[in-house]
Lab assay of single mutants.
Amino acid sequence: LVRYRTISKIPQITLNFVDLKGDPFLASPTSDREIIAPKIKERTHNVTEKVTQVLSLGADVLPEYKLQAPRIHRWTILHYSPFKAVWDWLILLLVIYTAVFTPYSAAFLLKETEEGPPATECGYACQPLAVVDLIVDIMFIVDILINFRTTYVNANEEVVSHPGRIAVHYFKGWFLIDMVAAIPFDLLIFGSGSEELIGLLKTARLLRLVRVARKLDRYSEYGAAVLFLLMCTFALIAHWLACIWYAIGNMEQPHMDSRIGWLHNLGDQIGKPYNSSGLGGPSIKDKYVTALYFTFSSLTSVGFGNVSPNTNSEKIFSICVMLIGSLMYASIFGNVSAIIQRLYSGTARYHTQMLRVREFIRFHQIPNPLRQRLEEYFQHAWSYTNGIDMNAVLKGFPECLQADICLHLNRSLLQHCKPFRGATKGCLRALAMKFKTTHAPPGDTLVHAGDLLTALYFISRGSIEILRGDVVVAILGKNDIFGEPLNLYARPGKSNGDVRALTYCDLHKIHR
């Protein structure tokens, strides 16, 4: 019993810090008490220290592992850092350059016999395009090294910054494609005289377009951006097909006994025919423009016929181009109408809503002055909100995010209106959640004399007048207030005048 009563005193000691020596009952000389009392004092002292730490809000209350900052290894790049964003855009520009100039170089340097010394005699450094290609190869190699040090988000939505895990993730992902696209074939085969082989191998750079397509997928929600990307894709495919079309004609031209190829026909049409040795002929500019003209006309199913396939190889390629053109029509131009419709969806919704308003007016036989006010209010409210119901949009977000959005939407009023000066951010967040926005066209009466005042109004834009009878008592403008002081009276009061809008007004109100 003594032991039980001794232990039962522990909660009292913990909360009230009572010393055991003052209790005459606990001072009985028993061996059990002498053993338990020192333990009680020690526990009391420890609990006292913990309570003191909690009340003082000291940093040592938290466990040590929670006080440590997340460790980022040296030379690790955050995937959302500004440097990584700028670097990704730079790589994107280099990939676009590669997609345009690599097929052009591979096709127009394929057994090209233009006048001038061969590239091997001039030297590697004197070729501007080769120098640019070398810079692109170096940048792609540097990009691989950067990807080995860039964080990523795993399946659990955690940012991984450990170098080993980053390397394994990159090896399992895009490393092989990036490595093949970054191989400097110019340096590996330079001086061997195989410019045709170098041009063909350099087309491996186009593998990076797969990554670019995935990154550009984030802009699919913007109709104008999608339309622009589709047109660029169409032009890029036409450019690639033009390079292939020229390569076919250029390879067949020296081996044909009869002059029936499209390059021969082009030379005869523009007065620059090929001679018996295969030299001469149109310039590279004429060849490229004509090839691009043929691919565009074939892809769009126009086909004027002034550039036509004559050999079997050219006919087979033309059939493939027609098939590609039909697929592009289905996948690209078939979506253009939907994209344009999405661009004008706001206008369509406006006309639909206006039609419903006019049908309501016609069905209920609203008189002319009231009908005009109804239409003007709808037009003004639509121009202010673009038909978007803010309350319906915010309803799907958590309250903390709703408060931040409301604070942002009402920031101008909260910053410049005098009653809100000096208020804490928590108070402003709470008030912003209570605001209701209303609009009024010129001549609209917001409050009639004798109406119950259940709200306090803040003028965000425009001006109003307060009338008693036919006498203008006051004219209020931006950041002015009218209405009933909230919670100042037990019952809502009545208006002693009319409140009429002089201009288009936007008002925020808080109800009782």
Rank of each mutant, 00 (worst) to 15 (best):
A330F: 09
C417W: 09
C126G: 01
R373N: 04
S313W: 04
L409R: 03
I177T: 04
M251W: 13
R74D: 06
C400I: 03
D178Q: 01
F234R: 01
G267A: 14
F175Q: 01
M179I: 11
Y293A: 01
G278P: 01
P70H: 15
V307H: 01
K202C: 01
G280S: 04
F363Y: 08
G278Y: 01
V336D: 01
C243W: 01
M256S: 15
N368K: 12
K84E: 01
V159F: 05
I340F: 08
N154S: 14
Y329Q: 15
H416G: 11
S297K: 01
G261S: 04
F140V: 01
Q68H: 13
Y97N: 01
V142P: 02
F420T: 01
V447N: 03
G261L: 01
H380V: 08
L129V: 04
L209S: 13
R373S: 07
R71S: 10
I135F: 07
E376G: 10
N312A: 01
F101A: 11
A235Q: 01
A423K: 02
Q68K: 15
N156P: 04
R205M: 01
A125V: 07
R429H: 01
V210D: 05
Y377V: 04
H169G: 04
S192F: 14
S412Y: 11
A238W: 01
P70N: 11
I146R: 01
Y377R: 05
E115Y: 03
L227K: 01
A69W: 12
G164A: 13
I332P: 03
L109N: 07
Y384R: 11
R342H: 14
E157T: 11
S161P: 03
M139A: 11
Q365K: 12
I324C: 08
C417G: 10
L263Y: 03
P117A: 13
K215Q: 04
R208C: 12
E196A: 14
Q402R: 05
D268T: 11
D404H: 01
P367N: 06
C122H: 01
N306V: 01
L134W: 04
L230Q: 14
Q379E: 07
F83R: 14
G396E: 13
S220K: 13
L197F: 05
G346W: 03
I146T: 04
S277M: 10
H364F: 04
T445C: 12
A167G: 04
C243L: 01
G271F: 01
G223M: 03
C400D: 04
T113V: 10
L428T: 12
V289P: 01
Y274W: 04
V100L: 01
Q68I: 06
R74S: 14
F363S: 03
Q253A: 14
I189W: 13
C243S: 01
K425A: 09
V447P: 02
G267W: 01
I260V: 10
H364N: 13
L92M: 06
I166S: 01
G280R: 03
A392Y: 07
E158M: 09
A392R: 10
T295R: 01
K272E: 01
P117V: 06
Y329W: 03
R74K: 07
L92C: 05
S258D: 06
K418L: 09
L109D: 09
H380K: 10
G443E: 01
H79C: 01
E375H: 14
R165L: 07
L323R: 01
F420M: 05
S298N: 01
I146G: 01
P442Y: 01
A392P: 03
I405H: 02
A130D: 01
Y65P: 05
T150K: 01
S326G: 04
L176G: 12
D286G: 01
F171P: 01
Y222D: 08
F294H: 01
V321I: 15
G123V: 08
L431K: 03
W382H: 04
W262S: 03
Y293E: 01
M231S: 01
R259A: 15
K202N: 02
L401I: 12
K285P: 01
L394A: 04
F294W: 01
H448A: 09
G305K: 01
L299S: 01
L109H: 15
L327Y: 01
K285W: 04
L67Q: 05
M251R: 04
C243N: 01
A130S: 03
Y219P: 04
H439R: 11
A204D: 01
S161Y: 13
P369V: 03
N156E: 12
I260S: 04
G396P: 04
C417D: 06
M251K: 04
G173L: 01
L209M: 10
T445P: 05
T76V: 07
G193P: 12
N154L: 05
T424E: 07
V210I: 13
G199A: 11
S337C: 04
S298R: 03
K272L: 01
D257I: 11
R74G: 12
A125P: 09
Q402I: 04
K395Q: 08
E64G: 10
L414P: 01
I177R: 01
V100Q: 01
H416V: 06
Y222H: 04
K418Q: 06
K66M: 10
L292K: 01
P254M: 14
I366N: 01
A130I: 05
F228G: 11
N386P: 01
K395G: 11
A69N: 13
P70A: 07
V289W: 01
F363I: 13
W89S: 03
R356L: 10
N250R: 14
G193C: 05
L109E: 01
G199T: 11
G193T: 13
H79I: 01
I146D: 01
K287R: 04
K84S: 02
E157G: 11
G223S: 05
F101T: 03
K434Q: 04
Y124L: 14
M256Q: 15
I141T: 14
L188K: 09
V336F: 08
Q127W: 01
I96D: 01
C427G: 03
A213N: 04
F185T: 09
I284Q: 03
H239T: 01
K272G: 01
S313N: 14
R421N: 07
T352E: 12
L216G: 04
T445Y: 12
E376T: 14
R429T: 03
G267N: 01
T385P: 04
W382M: 07
K436E: 14
L94V: 10
Y97H: 01
L67F: 15
K66T: 05
L197G: 03
L327D: 01
L67M: 14
M433H: 03
V86A: 07
M179P: 01
I366R: 02
F108T: 01
E121M: 06
L206W: 01
S220Y: 10
L414T: 02
G123K: 07
S345E: 10
Y124P: 04
G261C: 01
D444C: 08
A213P: 06
T445K: 04
T203S: 05
C232P: 01
S161L: 05
R429P: 01
D178K: 01
E221H: 09
N335A: 03
I138H: 01
L279D: 11
L299E: 01
S383N: 10
F296Q: 01
P367D: 10
L446R: 03
L207M: 13
T113L: 03
R71Q: 12
K418W: 06
T438E: 08
P441W: 09
I270R: 01
Y293Q: 01
L188H: 14
A338D: 01
N386R: 12
S331R: 03
G346F: 03
A242E: 01
N312F: 01
I260C: 03
K172P: 01
I366A: 02
V357E: 02
R429Y: 03
P282S: 03
N275T: 09
K172V: 04
G334Y: 03
H169S: 05
P163V: 06
A99G: 04
T233V: 12
I248V: 01
A330I: 03
D268C: 04
G193K: 14
G346Y: 06
L197N: 03
L236T: 01
C400H: 08
V321W: 01
I138F: 08
R208E: 03
L229M: 09
V226M: 13
I340P: 01
R342M: 07
Y65H: 07
N156A: 13
G280C: 01
A213M: 05
Y97E: 01
P441F: 09
R208T: 10
L129P: 01
I138C: 03
D404L: 02
S276G: 06
E196S: 13
L236K: 01
F420Q: 01
W262T: 01
